[in-house]
């Protein structure tokens, strides 16, 4: 219980930092850290396989994609940095207050409406579920990866 709470606090503060920080690179690192903490939370919720995916893909691969994109674009210079920081602060200063206020209000008056959980079935194995029950989703994954490949062919190549 306590460990969950601590992990969730870390998760939320990492997310807020991701949004607040000025440099894009730091923001991307913040996102990766958020993913890593999320992987730990998912692991604690009895879902180890999804945690592995979250850790390797979301904390590992997606920052790489983001950094590749950012490295092709224009980097903010040393002179512009303070100006940009000030401008951002104007727009983003409300976030921590909103989060704290919303958190306080929610923890004060948030009540889960009573409802019945569906009856728990027998224990299932993820591998069986993926291969025998959700194999249509697997086909969908293959097709969407193909679409991504065509996207790379079309979008990442410079004509002329």
């Amino acid at each position: 219980m306590l460990i969950n709470l601590i992990l969730l606090f870390v998760l939320l503060s990492a997310a807020v930092w991701t949004v607040m920080t000025t440099r894009l690179i730091r923001s991307i690192v913040g996102l990766a850290f958020t993913s890593a903490v999320l992987a730990a939370v998912i692991y604690r919720l009895n879902s180890p396989l999804a945690a592995v995916f979250e850790l390797s893909v979301c904390a590992g691969l997606i920052p790489v994609i983001f950094i590749t994109t950012v490295s092709f674009t224009h980097r903010i210079s040393k002179e512009e940095l303070p100006v940009a920081r000030k401008e951002r602060l104007v727009r983003f200063r409300y976030l921590p207050f909103i989060i704290i206020a919303a958190g306080l209000v929610l923890s004060w008056c948030f009540k889960i409406p009573q409802f019945n959980l569906p009856a728990a079935g027998p224990k299932e194995d993820v591998r069986n579920i993926i291969w025998y029950l959700r194999h249509l989703d697997l086909l969908g994954q293959i097709v969407i990866l193909l679409a991504g490949a065509f996207g790379v062919v079309v979008l990442f190549k410079e004509d002329k």
Binding site: R134, L136, D137, G140, Q141, V143, I144, A147, G148, F150, G151, V154, L155
Partner: peptide
């Protein structure tokens, strides 16, 4: 599965 295939369609149409 519905969501997955909506996303496949959408991905093709973005590109």
């Amino acid at each position: 599965s519905l969501y997955v295939f909506i996303e496949v369609t959408a991905m093709a149409s973005f590109i």
